[in-house]
Design a protein around this nucleic acid. Structure first.
Length: 679
DNA sequence: CCGCCTCGAGGTCT
DNA sequence: CTCGAGGCGG
């Protein structure tokens, strides 16, 4: 039988009481430095040790527990439901503005009856959950959601688990009462990591960081909330007793000194004419911020003036939310156009009534293929939601079915190529529909463009417009024709002067010497991308070898299976393709022999790297070359097999994936160290 | 059969 | 950059 380690539930000594107080103090300072200032002074392990010591002390002597103890951050057992909290000062919403005119109208309204200078504070409007935190004599006693503005839900236990807010105000002489208002948020990274782990666990992912924050804050079991990466950003006050502040500048300074995080983009005392410029900057930076921001909040700087302006029935007259352009928009799907790609695949593209989404005008969006159209039940004439999430590419998110009036028509994939009119084919088991005509001009244009593209022959100046003209006028029918173009012929094209014509001729001439894999990739054989072309280049050195290779020797190459082998052999067994290659060589094309594998340092042998973001010194290509030269492989996406992720500035989803899979993440410096070490 | 990977497709603005 | 389709390999 083990005897109890400690006498339980006894009276604690004075020494222990002091120790607990010291620990509380230290822990709250360290967590402030870590979460708010982002400048820790002790290691995570040291912090954990202090934390566990306090937990243990409190476990033995419950009388040592306080309302501001950092141990509350891990959460408490579940509640049966949330209590209602009456806001002593209502949490109002803000009036919205959508353009500069509305902003200046707001300024104008205020200016009436104000003599002298008029100044404003500006700050990003976070898209989170508005909460009010009540501090009595400096200690957090209650936290409530906004609710309907008058009555919210008590989420005190949950809010205490949020790491970057003070459980006790960090001021000498705290006010008797202070309600701090702000937003509870989840950052984009935390959101993605959370969703990845939810999906892995078979749970439904959250739609966006806001929902994730809301769902996390409204957990009945605050121990769950404690595991979620929530943050609090302060922006205002509710009820106050025993504190006098006279301006937004003072408020910001006070909140900062009391231990709150504020948006680094918050500024005070700005003249109104500067505000539109700051707005433009925020719109610009919007995507690169850690948190989702849906606008900018503008407040009258001077508190006296705020008081004089007062409220309308539902909004203060001294504040304005100038919203950002929406990232999601509704519009009409006018018709569906069918494009023919390089490989002959017919791709349906939605032609939309132009609509502003996230500051750009969107008029087209891909629908991928027929399966996608059926899955989303997209019909011509439908009202649809368009989203430009995170990235640039717009997509049709969904159809708004209840807005249908019966005039919508169902789209059918054409059975003839819209460009050349030949019959299309859908191969067994494939989703894609293809035009298989060898003379289809749409395919020819795309093939030529692919051939001239950067990773292939890299002919500068061969853009979409020029290629289209060359093909339409019959000047280019084969790859070899490109090498026969001369300056006068090019100068006859639209928008083409003699100068640019001769530049292009020179660019083409410069590419007569090329590498095996560039040419192979440029040919556009199905399933042969840059990667496969390089692999084949290492095995087959010369084009003669490759052209005469049989399926077995092709398939024996690591990374090449039966489908690829068949596609390659099929390509080279066709007379027209062999002729085309012959013509290319006749036109002066030279292929350098595939490089033999370089000897030397192979210290990255067997390691797989993924590069993401912008590295400070090395370009992406440099980094790739360094890795391959040392025997490593560079992959495009992160998986459990990835050895390292090299991450730079603006690292995106790959970074989060790496975090969630516990793949080691290197910055450029770490990467260079790894290269230099001999492992 | 499954997980990992590559290929190929798609906007807008600069 | 992101997504779906489909090929490769264990």
């Amino acid at each position: 039988m083990e005897k109890p380690l400690k006498e339980s539930k006894g009276q604690c000594s004075e020494e222990e009481r002091q120790r607990a107080a010291l620990l509380r103090n230290d822990l709250s300072r360290h967590s402030y430095r870590y979460y708010v200032l982002d400048d820790p002074e002790i290691t995570d392990a040291a912090y954990d040790a202090l934390f566990r010591e306090l937990q243990e002390l409190e476990g033995r002597f419950p009388e040592l527990k306080t309302q501001d103890s950092p141990t509350l951050r891990v959460g408490a057992p579940p509640l049966s439901g949330f209590s209602s909290v009456f806001h002593r000062l209502p949490m109002l919403s803000l009036e919205n503005a959508f353009d500069e005119g509305e902003f200046f109208a707001f300024v104008q309204r205020i200016r009436k009856g104000v003599a002298g200078e008029l100044l404003f504070s500006v700050e990003p409007k976070f898209d989170g959950i508005a909460v009010s935190l009540r501090y009595e004599n400096g200690v957090l006693t209650e936290a409530a959601t906004r609710g309907d503005g008058l009555v919210g839900e008590g989420v005190t236990e949950n809010v205490r688990t949020i790491a970057n807010l003070p459980l006790r105000l960090r001021v000498e002489d705290p006010p008797a009462v202070l309600e701090v208002r702000g937003e509870v948020l989840m950052d984009r990274k935390g959101f993605k990591v959370l969703n990845l782990s939810r999906e892995k666990a078979g749970e439904a992912p959250f739609a966006n960081p806001r929902n994730a924050a809301s769902g996390s804050l409204r957990q009945l079991d605050s121990r769950i909330t404690a595991t979620r990466p929530l943050r609090f950003f302060a922006h205002g006050m509710g009820e106050v007793e025993g504190l006098f502040l006279s301006s937004m500048a003072e408020l910001f300074a006070f909140l900062r000194s009391a231990g709150f995080a504020l948006s680094p983009l918050a500024q005070s005392a700005m003249p109104p004419e500067k505000v539109p410029q700051i707005y433009a900057e925020m719109v610009e930076r919007r995507e690169s911020l850690d948190y989702e921001v849906d606008g900018m909040v503008i407040k009258v700087e001077d508190f006296d003036l705020q008081t004089r302006l007062g409220m309308t029935s539902r909004t203060p007259r001294w504040a304005l939310a100038w919203k950002f352009p929406a990232m999601e928009a509704r519009t009409r799907l006018e018709r569906i156009e069918v494009q023919v790609g390089r490989t002959g695949v017919l791709t349906p593209v939605a032609i939309l009534t132009p609509v502003e989404v996230g500051g750009v005008t969107v008029s087209r969006a891909t629908l991928h293929n027929m399966d996608e159209i059926l899955r989303k039940d997209i019909r011509i004439g439908d009202q649809v939601f368009i989203q430009r999430a995170g990235d640039v590419i717009p997509k049709v998110v969904k159809v708004i079915e209840h807005l249908r009036d019966g005039s919508e028509t169902i789209f059918q994939m054409p059975d003839h190529c819209p460009v050349c009119g030949s019959l299309v084919v859908q191969e067994e088991g494939e989703v894609a529909v293809r035009c298989v005509s060898v003379t289809c001009p749409a395919q020819l244009k795309e093939k030529i463009r692919h051939f001239a593209s950067k990773p292939a022959l890299d002919m500068d100046g061969m853009g979409e417009k020029l290629v289209a003209q060359l093909v339409d006028r019959g000047l280019v029918k084969t790859f070899a024709d490109l090498f026969c173009l001369d300056a006068p012929a090019l100068a006859a094209m639209d928008r083409m002067g003699e100068k640019s014509a001769s530049n292009i001729v020179r660019a083409i001439h410069d590419r007569k010497k090329t590498s095996f894999h560039r040419l192979l990739y440029g040919l556009g054989i199905r399933h042969v991308g840059v990667h496969t072309a390089k692999i084949l280049g290492q095995r087959f050195r010369t084009f003669e070898d490759l052209m005469d290779a049989d399926v077995e020797s092709l398939a024996s190459v690591e990374g090449v299976g039966p489908v690829l082998a068949e596609a390659i052999r099929d390509y080279f067994s066709r007379e027209e393709n062999r002729e085309a290659l012959k013509a290319l060589f006749a036109a002066g094309l030279e292929v350098e022999e595939g490089e033999a594998k370089t000897e030397g340092n192979r210290q990255l042998e067997g390691k797989t790297f993924v590069i993401t973001g912008i590295l400070p010194v090395l370009s992406r290509k440099d980094a790739q070359d360094l890795i391959t030269a040392a025997g490593g492989r560079v992959a495009g996406s992160v998986s459990a097999k990835t050895s390292y992720v090299v991450a730079g500035e603006k690292a995106g989803s790959k970074y989060e994936k790496a975090l969630s899979l516990n793949v080691p993440i290197l910055d450029e410096e770490g990467f260079k160290k790894l290269l230099a070490s001999d492992m």
